[in-house]
């Protein structure tokens, strides 16, 4: 038997050249790698590499710029929407996106998020919600579920004391500047395909000057949740998606929920 199985007839998948060859630091089972790939595949398919400027956040995906083969800026914690605003205003012909986690977008950067959306900046915001602070070691996030145990809510999130998990996508959807808002997952192949479709429309619409296009992706964090990758995906489907319900929230400027 030949040891070389990498023959043309065996090739069923080719990595987009918009992902670099750097080994990702993400934990096995994390959704970031899949979301990076989905986004870069769409940018590649649309032929936008030379027109794209991405903004990386602070959090697990702080090094997104090492993996995405496009020009990128790394923003201070929570400030990606402000950074994206200026880039898009200064170069309106470019495609500009932010890629942010829940702590970045929905806690420390809430003001930047809301005002960017309210101004209707013509950008795509990719919001990865894993209900926890992954990079700093699994602390409570604004999106941590009620009763969920984290390093800073070791007895479970007590909503009477620290408030309820924040559905920020539903909040920003209310703003006139937001053209579209939807929630996705990447725990099944079908979900990834749906996400890619939403990303493509978000890129098209933001480039066409329709307003802010907001795509939330619920992702599991098996390390932070202290589960195996398979268990984490199952738990996400059973618990996270019950509170953060996937689907369209606003389509083409109209609320659909």
């Amino acid at each position: 038997m030949s040891s070389n199985i990498c023959t043309p007839e065996n090739l069923v998948y080719k990595k987009t050249s918009l992902l670099t060859d750097k080994v990702m630091h993400y934990c096995p089972g994390c959704g970031h790698g899949t979301i990076h790939r989905a986004l870069m595949e769409v940018v590649d398919e649309m032929g936008l590499q030379d027109k794209t400027i991405g903004i990386a956040p602070v959090g697990c995906s702080v090094l997104a710029y090492d993996y995405m083969n496009i020009d990128m800026q790394e923003a201070a914690h929570g400030r990606a929407p402000a950074v994206a605003t200026a880039i898009k205003r200064l170069m309106p012909e470019k495609f500009v996106f932010t890629y942010q986690g829940d702590g970045d977008l929905a806690a420390i950067g809430t003001a930047e998020t809301i005002h960017c959306c309210n101004r209707g900046e013509n950008i795509l915001m990719v919001f990865v919600n894993n209900a926890i602070y992954g990079m700093t070691g699994g602390q409570m996030a604004p999106t941590t579920l009620e009763g969920m145990k984290t390093a800073t809510s070791p007895y479970g999130r007590d909503v009477e004391k620290v408030g309820w998990p924040l559905r920020i996508t539903e909040m920003v959807a209310q703003l006139n500047g937001v053209w579209s808002a939807s929630r996705h997952t990447v725990h099944t192949p079908a979900a990834v395909m749906k996400l890619k479709k939403a990303l493509k429309k978000g890129i098209e619409d933001s480039m066409a000057g329709k307003g802010t296009c907001f795509v939330e992706v619920c992702s599991s964090c098996n390390s932070g949740w202290k589960m195996s990758p398979v268990e984490a995906n199952k738990w996400m489907a059973e618990h996270v998606l019950e509170y953060f319900v996937p689907g369209d929230i606003k389509v083409d400027g109209k609320m659909v929920r």
Partner: peptide, 20 residues
Amino acid sequence: VLQAESEVSSINMVYAGAGC
């Protein structure tokens, strides 16, 4: 010319523009 929502935001807009 853009009026930002805070000085925190405006300096980060400056970071962004300077980076371009």
